[in-house]
Amino acid sequence: MKTLMMLSLPLLAIALPAAAQEVNVYSHRQPELVQPLFDAFTQETGIEVNVAYVDKGMVERLVSEGSRSPADLVMTVDIARLAQIVDAGVTQPVESEVLAANIPAEFRDPGNQWFGLTSRARIVYASKERVADGEVTTYEDLADPKWQGRICTRPGTHDYNLGLMAGVIAHDGEEAAKEWATALRANLARKPEGNDRGQVKSIWAGECDISLGNTYYMGEMLADPEQKEWADSVRIVYPVFKDGGTHVNVSGVAMTKAAPHHDDALKLMEYLSSDAAQKIYAEINHEFPVKPGVPSSDLVESWGPFTPDSVNLMDLARLRPDALRIMEEVNFDG
């Protein structure tokens, strides 16, 4: 009997199919920005990456699914969403020497719950024809009445603008931040709407002279035959806070508490921090790599140098509720 059981084990092992090598990702990021990375990862490792693009309700979805969630990783577009997911208790800490070596401490959670993958600056797109060099140097300048009817932006309650607003609060305090938001609203050429590229189109069309936007959208517009004319009508200006640097935010990744494919998910996280993936981010997505030693693309370098603001990313995340409250109090999007 014992002999039969021992003999049957190898046969049983042969009969069972191998466990599928795959990673399931819930992503806020646009498909075209992350698919090249997943394709390269699969080609290198043979591990398939399945992606569900979740624009809204990611936290609620993960909480509802609980331990039954099929998601291994979540990828988000800014620090506030990363913090929200961690605060909801649906992630787990990840101990990895590779991640610790590749990602500087300022771009990862002290408790290893999330890891930044790229950074981007929130800058001003300025009309080459109607805005002189040096007219905008600080974010506070945007409140100057000389810009009345000349500024375009996406909604103030969008995460990108809330991140910037959190930076204003961190530097200038709540009262000054509310005054800034009120003055900025008064300077708008039209109701906040659309995305960052849409604002540049409005500059090209003569509807406004400056707009707020993320740096990488310039690369996307230049690569699009329809949008290249918009991009050629503006230049990038890196404003600073009057006592700081240029506002930056991050895209990042976290592992879910459920993570049914933990080991493969960790491999993907480590790959995303590697030289190969960081170069893809730089060349295809026009973002700033977080791994030291990986250069930005030649195109991004051509936009000139800037000094990133030193406010801690987690401080920005904690100030997001205050930023949202102020934007709603001044009826910024109304």
Rank of each mutant, 00 (worst) to 15 (best):
N195Y: 06
N50A: 10
Y160S: 15
M221A: 01
A13M: 15
A177D: 02
S302N: 06
E129S: 10
A181Q: 08
V311I: 10
E140V: 04
A254T: 13
L37V: 03
K228S: 14
Q92E: 14
G163T: 15
F107I: 04
I103L: 10
E287M: 14
L324I: 01
Q92G: 06
A276Q: 14
Q43N: 08
L11M: 14
T215L: 10
G334N: 14
I236E: 05
V90L: 12
E32S: 11
G293H: 09
Q35W: 02
V63Y: 00
F115G: 04
Q35T: 05
R325H: 10
P239H: 11
V200G: 00
L162Y: 05
A132F: 04
A19L: 11
A258W: 07
Y26D: 11
E301S: 14
A265E: 09
S310I: 10
L82A: 14
T256A: 04
T157N: 10
L9Q: 12
D55E: 15
A276Y: 02
T91G: 03
G293Y: 10
V168K: 04
P17C: 08
T256I: 01
D144R: 12
P225Y: 08
V237D: 08
K267A: 11
I280K: 00
A132R: 13
R185K: 15
A13E: 08
K2Y: 07
V248S: 06
S297N: 07
V131Q: 07
W180I: 06
K228I: 07
A259W: 10
N161P: 02
L316V: 13
K228M: 12
T3C: 05
K2D: 14
Q199Y: 05
P305I: 03
S69R: 02
K267L: 08
S310G: 05
A105E: 15
D309P: 00
P31G: 02
A186F: 03
V51F: 00
D87G: 06
T3K: 14
Y217K: 03
V290C: 06
E270A: 03
S233M: 03
D263E: 10
V51W: 00
T42D: 02
F241W: 04
L9M: 15
D55R: 12
W114P: 01
E220T: 00
V124G: 01
L12S: 10
S251K: 04
K128V: 05
S310W: 02
E270Q: 14
S251P: 00
D333V: 03
I85G: 08
G293K: 07
G213C: 09
K2P: 05
A189V: 14
S274T: 09
E229P: 01
L82N: 11
L117V: 13
T76G: 01
L12T: 11
S297L: 04
N24M: 11
W204G: 05
A52H: 13
R130V: 00
I85A: 07
R68F: 05
A223Y: 03
G134P: 09
I85K: 02
V49C: 00
D144L: 12
S297A: 04
G163F: 08
P155F: 05
V300G: 03
V51P: 02
